[in-house]
Simulated assay, not measured.
Amino acid sequence: MFGSRNDVPLDKDASSRFLPWLIAVMVYLATMSLIVALTMNKLANRWDQGLSNSLTIQVPAGQSPAERLAIEKKTVLLLQEFKKIPDVKKAEMLTDGELNKLLEPWLGKDVVLHDLPIPLLISIELSQSSARTLDAINALTAQNLPTASIDDHQRWLGNLLGLAKIIGTVSLLVVLLVGGAAALMVILVTRMGLAIHRQVVELFHLMGAQDAYIANRFQLHALKLSMAGGFAGLLLAGLTIAAFSTLLGQANSALLPSFTLTATEWGLLLLIPVGASLVAMITARLTVLRSLALMP
């Protein structure tokens, strides 16, 4: 009774044509949404780890070379004072090469910094951020370089982290909504199959076939079609990721996210078509059992 033969000719009805395509689209959308969520989570962690315990001090370099040289000397002395603060892990002035690298996404390569009014930048890394440490840095800066401004990144970092979390949450909600939409489609397609083969199903029912046997025919049919469509959708999503990774690699900008996925993340993506197939199978079974229970 549970052999490989299909007593209900489901392969010839409309569900065989539409369900794989519908599942492929749903899996593609769910996969891309999950990738967005993973990417935004990576960006948030990178921003948080890279900037949560760091400060940037901008020092106006002056208009003439002599003024710039004098300010550079004061900056070097100020760096020595910063290093005496217990929680300061590293304090250094960015070189022209490092400034070029920072400005490259906007101004391109080989920028002549001395021809531009670029301020001197001091990068400070803290072992831990505390109010006392920040007060000490502010006091030394105000005393030695009154025109300098301090940016602790907290304001815009908090906004970026909030935005990244919102986008990640919305992406996960899209995955759940796509799963719900896929279940609804399976219900509709299964009912369509029941309507098309109603006479065959009623005949089996009258001959004494158990509801579980008839449900198995439909659930295995839904599983087979969903697996085919699900892995097709995953393959299309993989090609899309590869295309985006190639384009981002050519752009070579630190401002853009990376779509490089780890083996664990690829395994998580592989669960999407498997999960979609299981949802389709269970949904088809429950739909058939419910419909058969209403038959005389």
Rank of each mutant, 00 (worst) to 15 (best):
E104F: 06
R155C: 08
A164T: 09
E81Q: 09
I150C: 04
V174S: 09
L220C: 05
N53K: 13
K224Y: 08
I282M: 03
L225K: 06
N100P: 08
N216A: 15
A14R: 11
M32H: 08
I57R: 08
L43A: 14
V200I: 13
T56K: 14
T147V: 13
D211K: 01
L161D: 06
K83L: 10
V27P: 00
K224F: 12
K12W: 11
T31Y: 04
L270C: 04
A284Y: 04
D7G: 12
Q80N: 15
P9Y: 00
L116R: 14
Q154A: 15
A209I: 05
A164N: 08
T260S: 14
I166R: 11
V189P: 01
L134V: 04
S277G: 12
E202N: 11
R17W: 15
P65D: 08
L163D: 07
M281A: 11
L145M: 10
E67N: 02
I187Q: 14
H153D: 06
L289T: 11
L163S: 08
V111L: 10
F244Y: 14
V59D: 00
W106V: 05
Q199G: 05
L176I: 14
M281D: 07
N100L: 13
H153N: 10
V189C: 09
Y28T: 07
P20G: 05
I214E: 02
S64L: 11
T240S: 06
G3N: 08
L177F: 15
T190A: 00
G238L: 03
I167V: 05
R191W: 05
V76M: 10
A131M: 14
